Amino acid sequence: MTEAAAVSTSATATPSAPSRAESFRSATSRNGTPATSTQSTSAGAEREEVGWTAPAGTLKVPIPRPSATSKPSKPAELTAEQEVKYATVFAQVSQWTSLPTTTLKGAASAPVQDHERMFLTHECILRYLRATKWNTANALKRLQSTLSWRREYGADTFTFDYISPENETGKQIILGYDNDARPCLYLSPGKQNTKMSDRQIHHLCFMLDHVIDMMPPGQETTALLINFSGAAGGSVPSVGQARAVLNILQGHNPERLGRALISQLPWYVNIFFKAIAGFIDPVTKEKMKFNEDLRLWVPPEQLWNQATGDLDFEYDHAVYWKALQGECEKRRKAYRERWESGGKRIGEFEAYLRGGDAKSLGQKLEEAGKFDGPEGEVKVNVDVDLAAAEVAKLTV
């Protein structure tokens, strides 16, 4: 099916289409959040302890979960039109068997890999739809572009060993959660320790991927805490570097930024932000807060004491880097096991994949796909791809 075909609609639907459409809609709930169960239904799921308290002494490792008072915000409910647009995109990406290996026009294609199918979650599709103002053709184009970019850029090949030299001074640290249970990524340009290279930009891409690993169920955005204390003029990125970073943030991680708290800006950094203002998406600008009281946004017990918080944290690269690697690898392994246990489906729910009690897409489809047949038969299973395609044909 072409993108144009995926976006176009049929004037009529087959007699069975409404039933399948309703089954799919009830399976994927109007706000995109799966129902919860009293029992864990995912492979490798580990129940999170409620809340987190700092241990005695100085902390040197990442914080594994939010404070008890930090809760993700409830996602906005989808309208009927948005449900159809989601299903339209979902029906198309479900049929992708190969993708371009680079973002260049006319690039050769290669088969879609499992980790790329796993990337295409229910929430991922919604993020790209929101980022494109619910334009299905543009959402499809950008999803394909991101997957091709990740292939071209090598984003899935960066290792902890490769990135390690960039982080020896702790210029980027994943530590704690804000009031909305967003994992916090501290960026400290004043701790720059390497000369400009591709690896510097790879470093940010790598840390963004791993701060996503630290998200609890129900959260899909992150908080950036950027502190320019001690940043010399030479450590401020060039406009070209800034545009490359914005491409990673806005182009290939859309709707991932929940909040950016920017502190201690010297005059030349203000000039820098003015220079790149035209490249920053208006939605991103709204999420940027300058020189605010960080304790209003992050629980003091999870806010680093170097950032006006109460958390006694010391960056010891050898200790922290090994601990971060272990935590992220454990989470990635469990995430993939749940995806495989759930049927290796495109459109899987991230809340299920991140553990807890959320049901998988397959479980919800099985429940919703039981309807009376022409002879009173029941238990007719609804194929997820077909159900989405049928919804896409109803209207636009």
Rank of each mutant, 00 (worst) to 15 (best):
D310E: 11
K285A: 14
E390F: 15
D357E: 14
T97W: 01
G57R: 04
P266S: 07
P64K: 07
L185F: 01
K285D: 15
C328I: 13
A13K: 14
A21R: 08
R25M: 03
M1Y: 13
A21T: 15
D312A: 10
L99D: 11
V382G: 00
A260Q: 02
V112Y: 08
P55F: 11
L104H: 14
T28R: 02
P299N: 01
N193L: 02
S29V: 00
A388P: 15
H203P: 00
Q172F: 13
T159D: 01
L143Q: 05
E46G: 12
P237G: 03
E337R: 03
W304R: 09
L324E: 02
S148F: 01
P237T: 03
Y162L: 11
S26M: 04
T221H: 06
I163G: 09
Y352K: 07
A17K: 06
W321H: 00
L261E: 10
G347W: 14
T221K: 13
R127K: 10
D383H: 03
I125Y: 05
L147F: 11
G51D: 03
A5T: 08
Y153C: 02
P189F: 13
N381S: 14
P72H: 09
K289P: 11
S164W: 13
R338E: 13
I248V: 15
R332F: 04
A45M: 12
L147Y: 06
